[in-house]
Amino acid sequence: MSKDTELVKKLQNPALKDSAFSELLDVYQERLYWHIRKIVHTHENADDVLQNTFIRIYKSIANFQEKSSLHTWMYRIAYNESIRFLEKNNKKSYNNIDEVSESNLEVLFEDEYFDGDEIQKKLNIIIDGFKEKQKQIFQMKYFDDLSFRQISEILNVSESTLKSTYYTCVKIIEKKILM
């Protein structure tokens, strides 16, 4: 039995739920925070969405049927919560991250917890210019340190497609940064 399966069993047991949830936070809080932060950009927004994400996880864990891994399930919740947050804030509806306006990058550069130099700003702009899938694949692999197998489960894309997309992104970044 994997660690995640064991954790799910504890989370679905009312007597062990609270202690298991604390354990879940230790393992996934930081990863999910950065996943969310890259979508909503500012720390303040990411903090709000992270809280909402974990509250939703806590409430829904009893219905989690392990059709996907716990990790995949939580990433999807975090993604949906981020999109919901942006829709609510901008009073617009989005089908995906591509539709979120570029003005969000301006918000990121003005955030008090952003102190990137010109190259870091440039990297943010290049990544923001990727298509939704490219962006997700690159960020999950490079920044969230997920394996291709895990990304494949989350995005429902074959591993070979993921690998080629990821290396294409890397080449684009290197070319543009070093230009």
Binding site: E30, Y33, W34, R37, H43, F114, Q120, N124, F143
Partner: peptide, 15 residues
């Protein structure tokens, strides 16, 4: 460190 990685490459920090 995942947070350090983000700080180093994207310039995004946390309190």
């Amino acid at each position: 460190d995942i947070s350090k990685h983000h700080k180093d490459y994207l310039g995004t920090g946390i309190p």
